[in-house]
């Protein structure tokens, strides 16, 4: 019952978005914003092409590396700052400050360090993703109720049992929330990097199409990214809800 309700809700949202899109198309004209029908027709033509595959793979590769680095470093920093009091006190304001500035202002620095190739994209994407993963992991560890440690001691758990059987499941919901946000902003970082200084990738396709006034191509790529992001986000959100339902 709830599942059907959700599907209906999603379909209503999609219908509204399509209607708004069509309305905007009628207002501003085909050159600025092609309508849904024209875009879908272009999508059917672009997506099977080798050009799209090549660029999509370039983005996917950069995104995968960036995500692995963002998750790995983010979790490591988060655990360190969460578990070590002094480091947390020093590190948290730094992370929060970094989190709140627009990372794009640092892009020239990243470019100078890592160059124009895939490593620059990976570094810029990872820079976006590390921060929310680290911040939420740190907060998850700090929020473990102190009584859990006392219970672990009264039940004679070893140090490793305490970590794996108590701390790990206690922090999991919040950590997964961090991974979900990290996923989204890492993708954002990679695409931004592709838009500003790259000759490959979906971000490049968008910005290139814009400068050539190929609005169908621009919109098609944007929609493919939109669908990918929504699907991935829904999957992670579903995991998060499953974990939260117990809490």
């Amino acid at each position: 019952m709830i599942a059907t309700q959700r599907v209906t809700d999603s379909l209503i949202i999609v219908a509204i978005l399509l209607a708004v899109w069509q309305g905007l198309n009628l207002m501003v004209g085909d050159t600025a914003l092609p309508g849904p029908a024209a875009t879908l027709a272009y999508l059917a033509h672009l997506v099977p092409s080798a050009r799209f595959a090549e660029n999509a793979l370039a983005t996917l590769a950069a995104f995968t590396y960036a995500l692995v680095i963002a998750y790995g470093l983010g979790l490591a920093i988060g655990v360190w700052l969460g578990a070590h009091h002094l480091s947390g006190a020093v590190g948290e304001p730094l992370l929060v400050a970094l989190y709140s500035i627009p990372k794009i202002t640092l892009y020239p620095v990243i470019l100078l360090i890592f160059g124009l190739g895939i490593s620059g994209k990976v570094a810029f994407g990872a820079l976006h993703g590390i921060l929310p993963v680290a911040l939420l992991t740190m907060s998850a560890i700090r929020n473990i109720p102190p009584v859990y440690l006392k219970v672990a001691r009264t039940l004679h758990l070893s140090k490793w049992q305490t970590i794996f059987a108590v701390f790990f499941p206690a922090t999991l919901p919040e950590v997964v929330a961090g991974l979900r946000i990290g996923f989204t902003v890492t993708l954002l970082g990679v695409l931004l990097a592709e838009m500003f200084a790259s000759k490959r990738g979906l971000g490049f396709l968008i910005i290139n199409a814009m400068s050539l006034a190929q609005s169908e191509e621009m919109l098609t790529v944007a929609i493919m990214l939109f669908v990918f992001a929504v699907l991935a986000n829904s999957l992670l959100l579903w995991m998060e809800h499953r974990l939260h339902r117990r809490n």
Partner: peptide, 23 residues
């Protein structure tokens, strides 16, 4: 303890079994 120290990620049964299983 005074605080609610039941583990929210485990069922009632698994909560009760927790100490014995770790042992």
């Amino acid at each position: 303890f005074q605080e609610d120290a039941s583990f929210p990620w485990l069922t009632v049964w698994d909560n009760a079994a927790f100490g014995l299983r770790r042992a």
